[in-house]
Design a protein around this nucleic acid. Structure first.
Lengths: 213, 213
DNA sequence: TGTGGCCGTGATGTACACAACATGCCGGCA
DNA sequence: TGCCGGCATGTTGTGTACATCACGGCCACA
């Protein structure tokens, strides 16, 4: 395994733990502890934590520790405002041709969404949401747009699991299932712009519910 | 001076050198050489190069060196497409109130633009362009949007100086001067959306001229 | 003379030791 | 009893030696 692959695995693993609240905001990510867990030295771990710090997910303070950051309301609103616009743009800037395989994947997501709605669990919800988001990135032919969208998504993804206790989990799962059904319908019609508009609408509604809670 | 400040200075300095072609695409950035120049060890330098690698400005290859990347035509087009949209969004998503000081700064940029048009020089051109871009970032109240715009700008900024020999330098300086005049006029009218639309228009026209060369 | 393998050289990647720093505790003193 | 200062402890930041890797030149051999 090459160095870059190791870095990517470590990065995605720790990022995932932050977004799934295995490391909640305020948690201390000890470099030594992580190094021991993954069987490497502090150096590659610091490389990953530096990247997470650049992306705003953690903050390293000398003599104290590397702390998972919190998401304040102002930042959250700004990120969602921008995410809405980018989600729509994904349907207009170089959308990739919708292949049969893409449609099949979308239908598979609908089924997984149905299973989630039947037995909702916060962690499964968040995991499926991340997977569906990654699927959406694959439909975007503009690499820069996909990169920015991913960066923004993961920047605030963790507040979702933080807010779930104040929301109706079953209703949220139903909304999510509906979103996937509508997106799948748009993709079956080979209409990337419709899919993008649906995504934008659901991001908007999701934020409204988040902000109200 | 704190560690983060040192990092930021080093980062901005090296990024500037890349965008001003002091380090042209293909150039090797030796960690040891940079460390010696700035009077530090390889460690902080590697921290900076890692960030530049994450942003796509350089590529570190084990056993070879850290190389300044080139910008291919497809990436350039996608980045400009997205930058146009973001430039317009800056006028709509939380634009900051336009103070008297902002107007004064804009008028100062117009004067500097006039001086540049009177005696055009590629490097001065690029430097003023970067300064004017940073000024524009300060008008955007959406921190996420400003961050993404900056990232995208610096990602392809170097192709400008690369393409200048194939363009009409005096004409480009005149275009740039016009852009600053129009933006200043919009800001004097306290109309951030007009300023944003002007920025978008000039990004679009600038790309058309770049792509034709 | 052409070619293939070996090795020197220099680069980035990793590990580790030490410096710099923040925090909390504990004891002395007013 | 309250407060203040020093110190122990643990953390991130830095420096440095070594491991790993790629490239290019050189030499042996066919």
């Amino acid at each position: 395994m090459t160095a870059e692959e190791r870095h990517l695995r470590l990065y995605q693993e720790i990022r995932s733990r932050i977004c799934l609240l295995d490391y909640p905001p305020g948690a201390k990510l000890g470099e030594e502890a992580l190094a021991a867990e993954f069987g490497v030295s502090r150096t590659p771990v610091r490389r990953v934590l530096a990247r997470l710090a650049d992306e705003g997910l953690v903050a390293a303070r000398h003599g104290v520790g590397t702390i998972v950051t919190d998401v304040d309301a102002r930042e959250l609103g700004q990120v969602y405002e921008l995410r809405m616009e980018l989600a729509q743009l994904a349907g207009w800037l170089s959308p990739l041709p919708i292949t049969e395989r893409v449609v099949t994947e979308a239908q598979d997501f609908v089924q997984r969404g149905a299973a989630l709605a039947a037995a909702p669990a916060p962690r499964d919800f968040a995991t499926l949401n991340m997977a569906f988001f990654d699927f959406g990135l694959g439909l975007c032919g503009n690499a820069a747009l996909a990169e920015m969208s991913e960066r923004l998504y993961y920047r605030t993804a963790r507040i979702w699991l933080q807010t779930i206790p104040a929301l109706d989990l079953a209703q949220e799962a139903a909304f999510f299932h509906d979103e996937m059904r509508q997106v799948a319908t748009a993709l079956e019609a080979r209409d990337p712009r419709a899919a993008a508009l649906i995504r934008r609408a659901h991001i908007s509604m999701s934020y409204q519910r988040l902000a109200a809670a």
